[in-house]
Design a binder for these strands. Structure first.
Lengths: 140, 140
DNA sequence: TGCGAATCTGCACTTCTTGAAGATTGGCAA
DNA sequence: TTGCCAATCTTCAAGAAGTGCAGATTCGCA
């Protein structure tokens, strides 16, 4: 995702308005590595801007996602998560504490795949589930 | 997933009761390659057994899943899907018509993965998205 | 055949997300 | 700088998926 300043320009260039709510969300998402949900961003945003609406958070995040500035992820954790990292990457989820981290996978071209007959695949996502270092230490 | 007859035995052996509702669901799921949702199974089940409850469908499927007889899949299609195929496999989803097929991937041991530092991965799922042969033909 | 525990049904309720309507406001033109 | 209008924001209701609960029913063993 681009910087708040760049997004401001980009929004104006597209005829979209730059509101304080949007700017706040630009800032909250930029460089954010927590894979937040709309709800958790709403919490953070509310601290800095009491009265901001959850609806606005959803709306802005969806707008950013459809502009390709961030990715929305369904990692099976109940709520959609938003990721400003739009590089080709995947995710690992801790099944105990819910922690999520970015994972980079290479060599996937060498995979041998059966059953894709005729499907035109446009996207591949790999999801790892398990226990994070902290949780796997505790569970021993 | 085992056959209805085998499941009947297995349920009794575990002290679980074998009801007509459960037997119907055993039959509907056995060999089912459609990756149905609870709702769609409920539709099918209702035809053969009017009055069966959606709650029972959810319950039975969840029971089967926790017994390891089938897998429940979150493929990002809105509702959880149930798959009697418990072999190691993955899925491809048509983004237009929603069709889902099983995909077998080999060679994934050769993947080079970065960022998994310390995570104890217990499950890996690969999801392919794209267009099925029929839909990609139409869209041309 | 009878009993008790397991199961089924029906319904309310939670969570996540979106739709709609009216109030507000950003940003361009004058 | 002022004003206007479309874009945006807030609020509220509603939809979809799934689960908890309570009372009625029924399976399966004795």
């Amino acid at each position: 995702m681009r910087s708040p300043a760049e997004l401001t320009e980009a929004f104006r260039a597209h005829g979209l308005k730059v509101t304080p709510q949007r700017q706040l969300l630009f800032r909250l998402m930029h460089g954010n590595e927590c894979h937040p949900t709309a709800e958790s961003l709403f919490q953070s945003a509310s601290e800095q801007m009491p009265g901001i609406s959850l609806r606005t958070v959803y709306q802005t995040l969806n707008d950013l996602a459809s502009m390709g500035e961030l990715r929305s992820l369904d990692l099976g954790t109940g709520a959609v998560r938003f990721d400003p990292n739009i590089d080709e990457h995947h995710h690992v989820v801790c099944d105990r504490c819910g922690d999520i981290r970015d994972v980079y996978v290479s060599g996937s071209d060498a995979l041998s795949i059966q059953g894709l007959d005729g499907f035109a695949v446009s996207n591949t996502s790999i999801l790892f589930n398990g226990l994070c270092p902290r949780c796997s230490a505790v569970s021993e």
